[in-house]
C-alpha cells in the first residue's frame, strides 16, 4: 500500500540520516562496493514497503539493521557458495580456539617491543576487510555488528532474533576464524617473517654485545 505524503516525509526524515551507517554496514558485510550498494538499496526499499509495521519509530535504526541483515542472509543463501552454519560448526572445529595473540607472543619476541601491537598496526584495512568478508555469513554478521558497529549482545540478539548465548557463540567462532585468517595473511605477506628475522638479528647482536 502506498504511503501517504506525511508518511513519506516521516520515512525520509528517519532514514536519510542513517544512510551512511547502513551503507557502511553493507560494505563490511559484502566487502564489495557494488554488492554493498545493492544491499543498502534493497534494504531501504523493503523498509519503505513495510514502514507501517514499525510501531516504535525510536527503534528505526535496529529495525533497518535487521532488515539489512535479513536481506543479506537471504542473498547469501541464494548463492551457491553459501555454507550453512551447521556445516561450518560441524566441520571447522580447528578454528574454534585459535588465538592470534598466542601465535605471536613467543617468549623471545616479548623481550623486544610489542610484536602484537606492531602486527595490528601493519595490517591494512583492506587486509582486515578481506578477512571479514571471507567469514561464514552468520559469523560475519556477529563480528561486524559487535566489533565493527559496536552493538551490544542484547542489540545483536534482537536484530538477528537469536538468543544471547547464540550471539556469544557465533562471535567466539567468528573472531577465532578471523584471527586465523589474519595470522595466515601475516605469514604469507611476510609481515611476521620480516619481524621475526629482525628480532632474531637484534637478539643475536645483543648477545654478541654482552660477550
Amino acid at each position: 500500500m502506498k504511503l501517504t505524503k506525511d508518511e513519506q516525509e516521516d520515512f525520509k526524515a528517519l532514514v536519510l540520516p542513517l544512510l551512511d551507517e547502513l551503507h557502511r554496514l553493507a560494505y563490511h558485510l559484502c566487502h564489495n562496493q557494488c554488492d554493498a550498494d545493492d544491499l543498502a538499496a534493497e534494504a531501504v526499499k523493503k523498509a519503505c514497503e513495510n514502514f507501517r509495521r514499525l510501531r516504535d519509530r525510536a527503534k528505526i535504526k535496529p529495525w533497518l539493521i535487521r532488515i539489512l541483515s535479513n536481506t543479506f542472509i537471504s542473498a547469501c543463501r541464494a548463492r551457491k557458495d553459501y555454507r550453512a552454519i551447521e556445516y561450518v560448526e560441524d566441520t571447522d572445529q580447528e578454528g574454534e580456539h585459535f588465538s592470534l595473540f598466542t601465535q605471536i607472543s613467543q617468549p623471545f619476541l616479548l623481550w623486544w617491543g610489542n610484536p602484537e601491537r606492531e602486527l595490528i598496526n601493519k595490517l591494512l584495512d583492506e587486509d582486515i576487510q578481506r578477512a571479514i568478508g571471507s567469514l561464514p555469513v552468520e559469523f560475519r554478521l556477529a563480528v561486524v555488528l559487535c566489533d565493527v558497529e559496536g552493538l551490544s549482545y542484547q542489540e545483536i540478539s534482537e536484530i538477528l532474533q537469536v538468543p544471547i548465548g547464540t550471539v556469544r557463540s557465533r562471535l567466539a567462532r567468528g573472531r577465532s576464524i578471523l584471527q586465523k585468517k589474519l595470522w595466515h595473511h601475516a605469514q604469507e605477506s611476510g609481515i611476521l617473517t620480516r619481524k621475526k628475522d629482525d628480532h632474531e638479528n637484534r637478539k643475536k647482536a645483543h648477545q654478541e654485545h654482552q660477550l
Binding site: 502506498k2 504511503l3 513519506q8 520515512f11 525520509k12 532514514v15 536519510l16 544512510l19 551512511d20 551503507h23 557502511r24 560494505y27 563490511h28 562496493q33 550498494d37 543498502a40 538499496a41 531501504v44 526499499k45 519503505c48 592470534l100 595490528i120 595490517l123 584495512d125 582486515i128 576487510q129 571479514i132 563480528v143 566489533d147 565493527v148 559496536g150 584471527q179
Partner: peptide, 28 residues
C-alpha cells in the same frame, strides 16, 4: 584488535547509490 576493527574505513557512499535511493524514495 577490537578497536582496530571499529575504525575500519569505508569508501564514501557512492553517488550511484545516493541517486538510486533518491529515486526510490520519490516512488513512495
Amino acid at each position: 584488535l577490537k578497536s582496530r576493527l571499529s575504525k575500519l574505513k569505508v569508501e564514501a557512499q557512492s553517488e550511484t547509490l545516493r541517486k538510486r535511493l533518491d529515486a526510490l524514495l520519490e516512488q513512495f
